[in-house]
Design a protein around this nucleic acid. Structure first.
Lengths: 229, 229
DNA sequence: TTGCTAGCTGACCGATCGGTCAGTATACTC
DNA sequence: GAGTATACTGACCGATCGGTCAGCTAGCAA
């Protein structure tokens, strides 16, 4: 079985080299000559396999997404308590970000662009699939009474994914902060994050006070409008 | 009083044009010719005021940070309950991200680079100052008994900032997701986020069960191995 | 008027960019 | 053997890159 790190055909080597360089430096900072050199092929060979630099970039993006997303199924654990399942998802998600960190960084770069020309719709599709799946799981937890009814599952999902993504993209910086002691311990990170998310941060005595009837989030359909925009 | 959007001197116009273009397209995708055209000056004029393109970029970064960070003081509200103060901070923080969105995007771009050559230390400094201030506030809340003692203030801070940053950088994409109904309503966003953070997501009945002595996160060093890898 | 300085510009530089093209090597079919 | 398709390369292209330079202008002091 050939390891995925060392493709033998030159097209595969080009893709691998391009993925690494694009993720590290960004699209515009990487020249086709640099990709060719890294892949050990001639520059003309790149244009033999790919019609343009942009086509190569899109190929890198789609190949990376195809390779990294199937594992999303493993991130969702059916059994266990809410706390256990949340912790498992957080850990699996942040592990996945790190395992495919080149692809993750490529997608994060896409989020910062606002030119729809490039592969933003790919990033949107990947993130969206990830997201709606998670929201569905949270809705199930809500139906069977584990999750409070007056919390918005989409907000919880965004909180989870957002914390993980920020933790991932800022880890080099966060590591230098003296307050942060979990930068290198993913197990501690996901445990603490889960605990906070499940139990909240307020003192238990104060929690009953703030039992706000925030139920306009679980709206009664009639007033909700489509937000297709 | 001259509006900050329309600098009169050409150096100021160059800075403003560069800030906009760098934030929108990234450092490498922007040529000095494009900056000159946007600023309405000659390309040579750029190199009359700034020694190089990179020097201009760093000037943009430092000027932007200097302009956007003083308002951080306003983000911290002394009076009110924990819930009110958290909500105020979240709202002020996300507002600040949007108000200085060009600077924010520049800093987020820096986070994705790993070449220390560029202005990453600037981003680190800005983020770090922001961060340690927030952690201090949370520690105070912990001392006076509003915040639970067994939560890590740094984790709460990262959760807050991370959710806001992710919400900010993904808003264009999130807006297309049908599950998300708060993409354009910052007030609702900060309210719901606060409520989840304060009270947690679990059903109150289940919460007492999960009162885990999670203090093994402050581990006893002996069994934990380094995970430097 | 002269001299000096700062702000600014058009023209230009070598280097590098993405991309092309003629041509070579190999392998397979007939 | 000839014919052909594919993989691949060195040499080259025009365009654009960051940056330089001589020179123009206006203001100001002597």
């Amino acid at each position: 079985m050939p390891s995925p790190q060392a493709p033998t055909c030159s097209a595969g080597r080009i893709l691998a080299a391009a993925q690494q360089l694009f993720a590290e430096l960004g699209y515009d900072a990487v020249s086709t000559s640099a990709i060719a050199e890294q892949a050990g092929v001639s520059k003309a060979n790149i244009f033999h396999h790919f019609s343009s630099k942009k086509a190569l970039y899109l190929a890198v993006l789609t190949a990376g997404c195809k390779k990294s997303t199937p594992l999303l199924d493993d991130m969702i654990q059916e059994s266990g308590s809410l706390s256990e399942r949340l912790c498992h998802f957080i850990r699996a998600h942040i592990d996945n970000l790190h395992k495919y960190d080149e692809v993750s960084r490529l997608l994060l770069r896409e989020l910062l662009e606002n030119e729809p020309q490039r592969g933003q719709e790919i990033a949107e599709q990947v993130l969206g699939e990830n997201f709606s799946r998670l929201v569905g799981i949270l809705r199930d937890s809500q139906r069977c009474g584990e999750l409070r009814r007056n919390v918005d599952p989409a907000m919880v999902a965004m909180l989870l994914v957002g914390a993980n993504v920020f933790f991932f993209q800022s880890r080099e910086v966060l590591r230098h902060f003296p307050d942060i002691r979990f930068a290198d311990d993913l197990a501690a990170y996901s445990r603490r994050l889960t605990e906070i998310l499940v139990n909240g941060v307020a003192m238990p005595a104060l929690k009953l006070k703030t039992n706000t009837p925030d139920t306009h989030s679980t709206n009664k359909g009639a007033t909700r409008k489509k937000v297709g925009v």
